[in-house]
Design a protein around this nucleic acid. Structure first.
Lengths: 236, 236
DNA sequence: TATTAAGCTTGATCCAAGTCAACCTGTAAC
DNA sequence: GTTACAGGTTGACTTGGATCAAGCTTAATA
């Protein structure tokens, strides 16, 4: 846990994150609230299902997964999160977290005490509205995942997944076509409702088709249109 | 579109709905905002994907489904909603709706103009916090659906679905064990990522096992423990 | 009362993805 | 540099749920 002076004002992710749209004055007031950061090593939990909720977290650097577990041990990865995205929104409803959040690489998050965020967002309309948009965006994203899981075939799911990652890397100034996956095939599979072998085979088929080049976690997208076309292939 | 005086103060769903936890004074202020209702006939849209967002809706009576469609026509039902639940939260993020909302029986909703709700929730902390809880609850629910779609088998999905309906009917004062489905087998299947034939067969198997009695849309739950056991691969 | 159509059930068959198993690759530890 | 191991790939085979098809039920309408 480290403490910081200008958490948001100096952050290059601010346009993707909670401070979006705030004036300088408002940014300063948000900075008063975001005064501590947490570093999380690869494999460590940011929070666990069942643990008390008192803050949400903005990812300053790194990469996370969130998952839920059934009593019998089955895991469902519910999302992968990267810089500028918020973690912990699930905890608001019940006052405790309902999923696990695990760092997939060494990461750092800004701690945003939730009741103070509510207080501030009663005073700053822009902040309030943007926070509502972020929560709503999460609901819309979830609907997209349901569509993926409920109606798409294995290759469509994986193509959608790669295109989504690509788009989010682009938004953060990274290459849209050349990146390293932070998650294993098993984690991708869990997110997409597939087994790791199916994910691996789909990668291989994409490579054979010339859509991508895969070498373990290194992905290069060679034909983005090809991937997009895969997603509109109707079930036979 | 009808206009009303005491929308929330007189509503018997208020403890399940947005007004939860408000004082009488606060309830009156919310009533100033919730001044119109809309009746929707069976099969009609409350809103469509792409249409502008300016209000959320509280279900006063009736039953809805929400769905998203792919360009090729494939449908994913993202949820079924009943009295006291909020519709339209998906529209906040993009200023237009991203899914369709269709009445599955003659229904009535209260119209809650969203920007006025934001204004009021800057003034009433309880309202603000409860609204955040409702949005968060939707996110948590979505995670549950992902678990369903991603890791559960057909019978587990249907058992989870029935138990969820049962629990929500109970909360509204209806029988937990005897109810009529408002949706078709096809809509259940879309929600659960299954084909209608699979849903029908699973119902038949539940009936053979003595867990339920089905006659078309009429469901009686005979052995709730049996259904619960199905979800954890246990025997009863 | 007969007709129609939408929705539901059930049987037969098929196939996409799961399972099982063997082997490969990269990397961390010694 | 060797070893060990987690993660990834690929092949052979199995299976749960999809698909195709036929018939049944219920409710609306003529």
């Amino acid at each position: 846990m480290t403490s910081v002076k200008r958490a948001c004002g100096n952050c290059n992710l601010r346009e993707l994150c909670l401070p979006y749209g705030l004036s300088n004055d408002e940014l300063e007031r948000l900075d008063e609230l975001v005064t501590s950061r947490r570093k999380i090593k690869q494999g460590e939990f940011l929070y666990r299902a069942g643990s008390g909720f008192e803050a949400i977290y903005a990812i300053r650097s790194g990469f996370f997964k969130t998952d839920v577990l059934l009593e019998d041990g089955r895991e469902q990865v519910t999302g992968f999160q990267m810089g500028g995205e918020l973690l912990g929104l699930d905890g608001i409803s019940t006052e405790f977290h309902t999923c696990n959040s695990v760092a997939l690489e060494a990461s750092e998050v800004c701690v945003i005490p939730f009741s103070r965020l509510e207080t501030l967002s009663r005073e700053i309309q822009t902040l309030q509205h943007h926070f509502h948009k972020v929560m709503s965006r999460e609901i819309v994203r979830d609907h997209g995942v349901m569509m993926l899981l409920g109606t798409m075939r294995a290759e469509e799911r994986l193509a959608a997944f790669l295109l989504n990652l690509s788009q989010r890397f682009t938004a953060r100034g990274y290459s849209h076509a050349d990146f390293y996956l932070r998650m294993t095939r098993e984690e991708i599979g869990s997110y997409l409702g597939l087994k790791l072998e199916t994910v691996s085979r789909a990668f291989s088929r994409f490579q054979e088709a010339g859509h991508i080049a895969v070498q373990q976690k290194h992905i290069r997208i060679l034909n983005i249109a090809g991937l997009k076309a895969l997603m509109s292939h109707q079930r036979v």
